[in-house]
Design a protein around this nucleic acid. Structure first.
Lengths: 303, 303
DNA sequence: GCGGATTATAAGTCAAACCTTATGGTTTCG
DNA sequence: CGAAACCATAAGGTTTGACTTATAATCCGC
């Protein structure tokens, strides 16, 4: 049986009006067109759906069943259509974003700003370390990810949208806090508090020291930026963090940025997604939002 | 937007297999034919429904919505078709029944007896655990289900048609096998072999012990009734199972039923279907068969 | 019986739906 | 790197779907 949605549509109209002519008018068709559709339908069903007595039409039992199902099916098609329209028009959809822990602060404000402009949408924000982010991308579980520069050997598309300066921090009362142009060989003799080995910040930092022929003398490893800042405040050592994470600490004078030669190390924040990933309308909108206006949401705190 | 049922059908297959090639095989089409249908569908919808990453395919959000509606719409078309066939008096049709694993034994004989009286029909019998059965009902994929009492908060119609006594089994040579009126506090110190937590039998059993203020001392968890019976035979512990599953084991003397106070726990078998489900003529006939004569097909084996 | 309304039938047109085979490009995996 | 699996694209052909207009045929009410 080769049913057509068109047939259902025509039949529904006929059944509702109990008139071929009315149906033809409603559908902007000629009357014979309607006759044909119904006839065809009846032939395919092997049953008559309408019976005429005199000038009037009535539905047979099969016709009534058919009518019920026609309505229901057409309604579902309508609903589906509506949903697709909403998905297209950014009135519906879900955005899956993940950000590096280091980017938590400004990324949250960024997403919040975007969400304010698109209230009908749903969002999921995941905050993870670099390793997890890459795994999520690999498994195709995220629309977009905000992180440091991803490895070049993966099938990823990454677009830088903002600078990410790494600075050396110390307690304000630290001996080096007032020096200018601190030399690296002096710095590396200090104890340091660092992130775990897979962290983007840690990798960049080590690469920097290595390039300049130095190695840190003493390190203590912690797994979050917040821990690092607290440890530095407590005098456990110096630290290297993204300047974007320091808003509060600088304002309240809890931490100081050291003026070290070669610093800040300027890296970038990247908006990353899988190569070949078809971005949804929502994801596409967010991408443009970030690339065009992302930088505005993380003004560098004054030193 | 000019949707076609054919398109939905092809898309449904692709979405289910997440493979163009599999879908083509299923529909007896060439693979490019499938590609084209999908492409056209996406063009009409104005959204991409599938994305490829590597060799794999995944549904986009729009694709997921589309898939849901496709299934639902196609199913309605199927139902409609079935109804028309019945109206034509062909009684053609397929009865979809699912039963709990515990009911496998007598349900199979029951369906066999019914089939003997209605040879022109086709049957599908699925044997699953409770969780799966409920999911099948929810998705409207089954005409009728035979299982223990379903949760009251679901939109289901359930009709009891037979008792289901749960008994404690042991190897015949077990120390308790010859005792009469075994006290519960004595029983619960024995090791037990039990079904997984979602199993109906497990739930009833735990509720029973809990109500009497006891808890089993030692449990080993297995996922089928057959495994349980084997484990009990092997002396790994006692078990609680439906007496209906014990025909062979009792006849051949491989297992013994213990005479425990409060046992058997009497539950019931239910014939279940979705609320509002329109039962086909076949399903209706089977329902009456089960309700009226079902009990006769599971004579309780003598102890 | 006749005008008006309604549906059926016929013939013809045009587009597009649907499928095929052949081939090319990726990706994965041994 | 080469084979295998998988999907995309191209080109081509046949069918059939969905209309149209024109013309019966039927039925109602007066």
């Amino acid at each position: 049986m080769h049913l057509t949605l068109r047939q259902l549509q025509v039949f529904e109209s006929v059944a509702r009006h109990l008139s071929f002519t009315r149906a033809a008018e409603e559908l902007h068709l000629s009357q014979p067109a309607v006759s044909m559709q119904i006839k065809q339908l009846e032939a395919q069903a092997g049953l008559s759906l309408l019976e005429q007595y005199g000038k009037k039409n009535a539905l047979t039992e099969a016709g009534r069943e058919f009518y019920q199902y026609s309505k229901s099916i057409l309604q579902q098609v309508d609903e589906l259509d509506g949903i697709l329209q909403e998905l297209k028009g950014l009135r519906r959809g879900c955005l899956d974003v993940a950000v590096a822990t280091t980017a938590n602060d400004f990324a949250t404000r960024l997403l919040a700003a975007f969400a304010r402009e698109h209230e009908a949408l749903n969002y999921r924000l995941e905050v993870s370390n670099r390793e997890t982010l890459l795994a999520r991308l690999e498994a195709n579980e995220m629309d977009l990810v905000i992180m440091g520069r991803p490895p070049a050997d993966k099938p990823l598309v990454s677009e830088p949208f903002m600078e990410n300066p790494l600075v050396v921090i110390a307690p304000p009362e630290h001996a080096l806090a007032n020096e200018r142009q601190i030399a690296l060989d002096k710095l590396v003799r200090e104890p340091f508090v660092v992130r775990e080995k897979v962290s983007g910040t840690r990798i960049a930092m080590e690469r920097f020291f290595h390039q300049h022929g130095f190695e840190l003398a003493s390190q203590m490893e912690l797994t979050s930026n917040e821990s690092i800042k607290h440890a530095v405040q407590a005098g456990l050592g110096l630290g290297v963090v993204s300047r974007h994470t320091l808003r509060l600490e600088l304002e309240t004078g809890r931490l100081a940025i050291l003026d070290v030669e070669g610093f800040p190390i300027v890296r970038h924040w990247y908006l990353v997604h899988r190569q070949g990933k078809r971005l949804s309308a929502v994801a596409q909108a967010f991408r443009e939002f970030v690339l065009n206006r992302g930088a505005a949401f993380a003004p560098l705190p004054r030193v």
